[in-house]
Design a protein around this nucleic acid. Structure first.
Lengths: 139, 139
DNA sequence: TATAAAATTAAAATCATTTTAAATTTGTAA
DNA sequence: TTACAAATTTAAAATGATTTTAATTTTATA
């Protein structure tokens, strides 16, 4: 379920998170941008409008969101943790040329025989390659 | 295709990699242990027998292996890159209790409609949860 | 208004990885 | 065998993302 921009504050309250200004703006950024930003990107984008913002707050807030299952971390590449406010299971494709991350739908319901006795709490699917746009630009 | 222990040296030669002692031992460790070790684990395990070994060599060697498609990196968790000498596509399950990584078979052939115009070069599937053994120990 | 709890912050610490430049080893041609 | 160039390995320093710490600011409420 995607969060809508209108009700960020109520949404946070429903998750028992106090909707401070920083939290609202960070979640709003995650939802609106929908680009799976890094901490650096979030911080840089918001520090202009929230001059007192610190990176620690961005880290704290994202950790809070993850604990509340509002956001999830995308570790498609070490050395660049990204964050996604879309919790529903879907795949991520990273373009090795432009660096963009694309979402795609993929069925992850199928039961895995070997994991029958395991308790699965999280599934991630990461693809890499070259996106359509970058392929076009090459010709 | 799994590499067998007997022919590590020939295998490296077939990939146009000079089979130095460090390279042979590191690849051997990856193949035999089959536990998706971190750089730290590889280094610690081998430095006793190869006292001059340095971590930089482990890093260099793993990078070399990845470039030659002999090994792949598993970034199921930022802050702990792991390495796998099994290149065939398969899924990885990480137990949040004991930290072990399990392999499992999963069909990754299915074409994704949304990525039809994309060039896919790498697919990763990461699951997390609690493994069977840790679930048993809890009761 | 006072006060305690929560949120935010800057600065320092940590730690995996990369870079750099030097030292060592290896292969090969003379 | 010897000498030299290339490849490999190395230690040390640099980098950079993240975490920790401890202090400050903000918020809610009595």
């Amino acid at each position: 379920m995607r969060i809508s921009i209108d009700n960020i504050s109520e949404f946070l309250l429903s998750k028992h998170i106090k909707p401070s200004y920083a939290r609202i703006r960070i979640l709003e950024y995650l939802v609106v941008k929908d680009s799976h930003p890094t901490v650096e990107e979030i911080y840089s984008a918001l520090v202009g409008e929230i001059p007192t913002l610190s990176k620690t707050t961005v880290y704290n807030t994202l950790k809070l969101f993850m604990e509340a299952d509002i956001a999830r971390i995308i570790t498609i590449e070490e050395n660049e943790a990204r964050y996604d406010a879309d919790i529903d299971s879907h795949g991520h494709f990273k373009c090795n040329e432009c660096g963009r991350i694309y979402d795609f739908h993929i069925d992850m319901q199928k039961e895995i025989e070997e994991l029958k006795a395991f308790k699965i709490s999280e599934k991630s699917v990461y693809y890499k390659g070259i996106c359509h746009e970058c392929l076009s630009n090459k010709n």
